[in-house]
Simulated assay, not measured.
Amino acid sequence: CWALMALLFVGGVMNVLWIAAIAILILLEKTVPTGRALPRISGAVMVAIGVWLLAGAG
Rank of each mutant, 00 (worst) to 15 (best):
I49L: 13
A21M: 08
G11H: 04
G35W: 07
W52G: 05
I49R: 15
R40C: 13
A48R: 12
A37F: 04
M46N: 10
R40F: 10
M5V: 12
G50L: 08
I22V: 11
V45I: 08
L25G: 14
I49G: 06
C1I: 14
G50P: 10
L8Q: 04
L8P: 14
A23C: 12
L25P: 04
L38E: 00
W2R: 12
A20S: 14
K30N: 06
T34V: 07
L4M: 09
L53V: 05
V10P: 06
K30P: 09
L28Y: 04
F9H: 08
A23D: 12
I41K: 00
G12L: 10
V13S: 03
G56F: 01
L54F: 01
T31C: 04
F9C: 15
I26D: 02
E29Y: 05
I19S: 01
L17W: 15
V32P: 06
G56L: 03
L17A: 14
A20C: 14
C1T: 07
S42Y: 12
A6L: 09
L4R: 03
A20R: 14
W18E: 14
A3R: 13
V51D: 03
V47A: 12
A21W: 12
T34Q: 14
L38G: 00
F9W: 15
S42R: 10
C1M: 13
N15Y: 03
V45L: 15
C1V: 14
G11N: 10
A48N: 06
W18F: 04
I22C: 15
A3K: 11
V13M: 06
W52N: 03
L28M: 13
L53I: 05
I41V: 07
L17Q: 11
P33R: 12
A23S: 07
E29C: 09
W18D: 06
V32D: 01
